[in-house]
């Protein structure tokens, strides 16, 4: 019963987020700040993880190809498919649920605990629009982060391939171009946009409706990470079934 109540409150929060907009001159500043905090601030860690995980995917694929009849170009093909279809959109989103999600929950939760949200409400400001909407707009740029993850994942794979001597550059690039389905990019970016919405709203919900003090802010951040990851994994399954099967 409590789960239903929470789901209902979450959807009411989303409706409220679009009502009674904050002044554009103020909103513009909030969006720019959130782009800096949530998007630009995440590029470093995403780039680092993508490059090395791309390399690991390549090494694992190469080491598991014992049959001499299998062409070496399959290393490039497998890396491309893994990185574009799953690693970049889904697993980076789960990492972002930890980084960005915890930041959103703890910052909004601290505002709740220290009565800053009450202060906004008393002034007649729609606090959900003021706090959550700019995060939602900022994270519409999230597909650019995922594009970087895709690119660096594949480059990482290339580097591992060449320096590890698992395949030649030509074989790797041939594999990358082999049986390329443009719709896979559409699928990956559709997922990314939906995950961006989840990343902006689920952690905000946990921060906004939390009760208690500093300890509960920490607990809310953990709960927020768990639920954001669960929602991303479930949506990933549903979207894959709908779009690729």
């Amino acid at each position: 019963m409590q789960y239903l109540h929470n789901i209902g409150t979450y959807f009411l929060m989303i409706v409220e987020m679009f009502r009674k907009p904050t002044r554009w001159s103020v909103m513009k500043q909030l969006i720019l700040k959130d782009i800096d905090d949530l998007v630009i601030g995440s590029i470093g860690i995403v780039a680092f993880i993508s490059f090395f995980v791309g390399g690991v995917v390549t090494i694992q694929t190469a080491l598991n190809m014992d049959n001499p009849l299998i062409p070496r170009s399959l290393v490039g093909f497998a890396t491309r498919q893994s990185v574009i279809l799953e690693f970049a959109p889904t697993f980076i989103s789960i990492i972002m649920a930890g980084k960005v999600g915890s930041f959103i929950t703890s910052s909004i939760g601290t505002m709740r605990v220290t009565e800053q949200i009450d202060a906004l409400e008393v002034m007649g400001i729609n606090s959900l629009n003021y706090l959550v909407f700019p995060k939602f707009i900022a994270l519409t740029l999230y597909p650019f982060v995922i594009s970087i993850a895709m690119f660096l994942g594949i480059v990482g794979g290339l580097a591992a391939c060449v320096f590890g001597g698992y395949a030649s550059i030509d074989d790797y690039i041939t594999g990358l171009q082999q049986d390329f389905e443009p719709f896979h990019m559409v699928y990956a970016f559709l997922k990314t946009l939906l995950f961006a919405f989840v990343l902006a709203t689920v952690p905000s919900y946990h921060g906004f409706y939390m009760k208690g003090g500093a300890l509960e802010v920490g607990k809310a951040s953990t709960t927020s990470f768990v639920w954001t990851s669960v929602v991303i994994i479930l949506l990933n399954y549903i979207l894959t079934q709908m779009l690729l099967s």
Partner: peptide, 24 residues
Amino acid sequence: SEAEKRDLRAKIGMVFQGGALFDS
């Protein structure tokens, strides 16, 4: 109405126990 409440709230000043100043 919501608009009238908003107008009225613009005429209210509040000092919270902990100050409730915006940290950022």
